[in-house]
Each structure stands twice: as structure tokens, then as C-alpha cells.
Design a protein around this nucleic acid. Sequence first.
RNA 1: GUCCCCAUCGUCUAGAGGCCUAGGACACCUCCCUUUCACGGAGGCGACCGGGGUUCGAAUCCCCGUGGGGACGCCA
Length: 467
Amino acid sequence: MSAVKTRFAPSPTGYLHIGGARTALFSWAYAKRHAGQFILRIEDTDVARSTPEAVQAILDGMAWLQLDHDEGPYYQMQRMDRYKQVLNNLLAAGHAYYCYSSKEELDALRESQMLQGLKPRYDGRWRPAADKQLPVPPSGVQPVVRFKNPTEGVVVWDDLVKGRIEIANAELDDLIIARADGTPTYNFCVVVDDWEMGITQVIRGDDHVNNTPRQINLLKALGAQVPQYAHLSMILGDDGQKLSKRHGAVSVMQYHEDGYLREAVLNYLARLGWSHGDDEVFSMSQFCEWFDLDHITPSAAQFNTEKLNWLNAHYIKTLPLAQIAQEVAPRLHQLGIQDITFPALTAVLALYRERCNNLNQLAQEIAFFYQTPTVNSVDAEKHITPETAVVIEAFVTKAQACDWSANALHEVLNTVVAAQQIKFPKLAMPLRVALIGVAQSPSIDQVMALLGKEVCLQRIRSLFPKI
RNA sequence: GUCCCCAUCGUCUAGAGGCCUAGGACACCUCCCUUUCACGGAGGCGACCGGGGUUCGAAUCCCCGUGGGGACGCCA
């Protein structure tokens, strides 16, 4: 077998969604695993629905996920001349023929077949045969080109995911490979490309299972080597329903915007429909060493945001701080915070990153370090009582004298609590409310140390003006 | 309707005839840690779609049901 070459071949009619991303990931990983090549091919022959924006969205998605291609992107619209050559060869060799049936005629045929409980298929009325009298071509009608599919026998292939699949040629019909305007159709372009680009494994969604026997027949007519096929089952939404734009089928870039790390999305996707024993958390380089098609589940998988969140949390707390800072900084800017020089973002993140499973949430949580928080009235009411001011005043008095390090502040906190004969939260909670606006935070001494003496005192005084 | 595919905890999955009184992970529950909230640690709850075979033995193989999904375009 020649060197492995896989491809991802999306049609640019929308953004790169999670299902497409997983298909791309598996194709990419398969090539990496076998030291092969991965190519990107844009299937843009549906001129009416393809858009440059969608092309860009796919490119952006692939770039964000860092699924780099070794060749391409190829654009099918740029290969028209080649398709037409192959088409003519097929016509000349008698593997294809012109069909003058109108769309209306075909619709009527389909309808009557459905009514009879039959599978709708072209009946071959323009298909040439040895002793057959073909109808006279109507004038002024541009014909389509149909492939002369074998009428007998079975098409068999050993699907790398689903095992042996057999489909009788009697189930197939003569598919249109070129439209009336002369442009080739999907099944034909795919075949020519997979053949000429030397694709060895076609890894794609299982909605293509039914196209496979047609493509194999076409490949055989062209005298081409038939690649191996691996049909991935689909991904269902969180609710078990088919992924659609209406419920949650979002662009992979949306995950980026929504606060997910690529590491988390990739790791999650890798484990959706594929497994390596009990391993759950692994890097992409590890994945590329492990990935194989033997351990792909043939059944559909339901997307589980909770688990993605868990992985996101894992990567937020384990990736280098500098990397997390790079992700969080722009999100702080989006919250209207311009200056993030003090306190150092990495120091803040070191204290806070264990508390969030999402980058946007993380940015929101730490925003108070860079801008004055609004006090949560529920928390304020709960933790600030008439006696509070006394306690806080005692704390401020003592704290002002210390060097404002976390350790020193910790000492002061303990001293004041002992002197006032109160429980620790009686002091810590009102401080949190004054400094952060809410009653939840990491160790309050560490927060105060990061915030700095000046800001702390200022925020305390704004809530307790008499101090 | 016809053809094709699929079927283990709520979810993702391990499982290739005996290692399975079915393992791991997310979620959930309990406890521990604790300066609140998290994080972390320790436990717990929880599944082989049904029925027939084959076999000494089946989650694993076969058949039939049932359920779910996909395809049936001059879309890709």
C-alpha cells in the first residue's frame, strides 16, 4: 500500500461545525499517525450555495484547531477543465451517456415510484443498449450526462469503521455526473479528485455510505484504484437530536468565542466516538500516536457539554499561565478593561484559574482586580451587620501598619479575629463584599495582597465611609 | 415506501466466548479538606433493548423482533 494520504473535503455552504471538525480531526490524525499527508479540499461546485465567507469560516476553524494540511486547499471550481476531460473520456469509452429527460419528467417518475412503494430511481430511458431504440432527442434541450452504472452484481467494500457493506447494483441508478450546463456534480468530482490526488483512506461522515457504491463503480470505470473507506457516525446534540442550527449546532469558532480552549475542544472531540482504553485526557501529539480506526464506535454519539466543560476546566488549570493569560487578556478587554498591567495577570490567574471551567467566566471573575466592582446587594445584606464596621475598622488600623503581603495580612486577620472574639467569616466575608463585591473568593489575604494596599483601603472606605 | 447502518450506566465509552458479581470518565449524591465559593481527596448511585438459537460457558457469535438513525436531488 502506498503512503497514507487522507483528506477533509467540506463544502463551503456554512461554517465549520463540530461534526465536520471531528471528521477533519480524525483524517488529520490518521495521516499523522501513519506519517502520511493530509489535504484540504474545498468542494464548491454548488455555485448557488457556496460562499467565500463560508470558505473563510472553514479555514479559520481549521486554523484555530491547528489542523494543518500538507496540501491545498484545493478548490474544485478551479479544476473544471480536468473534470471535463475525464467526463469526455468516460463518454467516449461508453461509460456515460446523454439524458434528455426534463426535471418535471423525473419528478413525475419519482412520485409514481414512491406511490408504488418503490425506491425512486431513474429508469434508464436514455441509456443506450445493444438492441435498443433510443428516443429522438428533443430540440432545444441541453442534456445532462449520466453514468452507466452496472445493472447486476453487488458492490462490496470493507468499511474501516462499519465492517463489510454490500449494496446491490440493482439498488443504484444511473446518476447524473454533469448538469445540463456542463458542470460536473459532486459524486463525479469527488471520484476524480480522490483518484488523482492519490487519497488512500476516505474518512467522512456516514451520510456518504450510500454514495460509496456509486463512487466505487465510477472509480472502476475510470480504471482507478479504489481507496479504503471509513464512515464516521454522526454527532447528535446535547438533547440527542440531530445537530442543527436551531439547537446548538454551532461553529467551532463559536466555542472559541464562548470561552473554550482549543485543547479542550480537540480532546473532547477525539474521545467522541473513539477511545483508547480508559484514557480521557491526552495531548494531540499523544492522540496522533494512538489514533486508529479500529477503536471508532460505529454508533452515533451524543454531544455532552458537561464533559467538554470538565476538560476545559482541566486545561485552564494545567496549561502554562502565560498561555491562559493570552486567552484571557482579550476577554478582559471585551469587558471594557483596557489597563491590565497591575496586578500581573499571570499572578491573578494563578489564584483564580482553578475556579472556572470557562475563559469568559474566568475573565468576569477577575475583572474586579482591574475595575471597581459593584456590590452584590444580597451578599452585602447577608454579611454586613451593624457590628461589622467596628470589626473592619479594627482590621484596617492593624493592617495599615503591615507590609501588605499575604502572610502579613493573614497574621493581621487572625489577630483581629482573636481580639474581637469573633469567628473568622465575620471578618472575611464583609471584607470580600467590600473588595470584590461578592462573598466568594479565594483566600482573602491573597486577594488583598494582589489588589494592593491603596485599592483595598479605598474600596473598604467607600463601603464604610466612617473608617 | 425501498435500501443501508446502529443498539452496554442519564451521557461518552472499555469489552474481540471464560479475566464481567460488566471497568473508566462526565454528571449526580455523601463524606473529608477548608476562611466563603471553588479546587482536590475518599466513597456511593447507575447499563449489557427483547426473544430465540450456537456453546460446557455469550455483553461478546447467528437468527428474528423492537427501537433509533441515514440515504433515496441537474445538494454536497
